[in-house]
Amino acid sequence: MLDVAWARTWVQAAAVAVADAKDELTELDRQIGDADHGFNMDRGFQAAAAKVVDAPAETVGDVLKLVAMTLMSTVGGAAGPLYGTAFLRAAKVTTAPELGPDDVVALLEAALEGVVARGKAAVGEKTMVDAWTPAAAAAASARDAGADAVGVLEAALRAAEEGAASTVPLLATKGRASYLGERSQGHLDPGARSTVVLLAAALEAARA
């Protein structure tokens, strides 16, 4: 049941998953960026998890808003405002007591819109947009095909994983990796990878 309890569990699971992925994300960022993505995300999600534990929240949206504000004030870098805006927009469309398939699609679409509104990247520029875009699209397809909320999340995660993998051959044209020109090719985008980690945590929380 994707309710406020799920949202809280998601944040805790995300904090654990990001901590586990910290070195991996940092190493990816070391290759084509500035070696801080794992630390930025970890700092943000530890803070978010600590906040969410006993903050009052009635809806999924309340939790996501808290996450948004915390990420905004603790992450910094490019990822801070991008994920902050994503969670803020997602919070606005998740005010129902329990999220159905439509709500999950709306959450993902709003998050994607938030990332694009702030970062102005399109698909194929080797950013987290390459994970969020197929995730939102696959979620909509799954919903249309009759999947339940958890099934929609599953489809989104699978598509995000593929989307992240698709960034490897790409030449970066947004973010810090773009400074590398052709040398950015052959590497997984760290933000696309952290998107996968967050969606996997959402699914894990839904199954818990």
């Binding site: 500035d34 070696a35 801080d36 630390f39 930025n40 700092r43 905004m72 004030s73 603790t74 992450v75 910094g76 870098g77 490019a78 801070g80 405002p81």
Partner: peptide, 12 residues
């Protein structure tokens, strides 16, 4: 100042 090599946050 942000964290090392990381831009500061909007509230700062």
């Amino acid at each position: 100042p942000g964290a090392v090599f990381t831009s500061p946050t909007p509230d700062q």
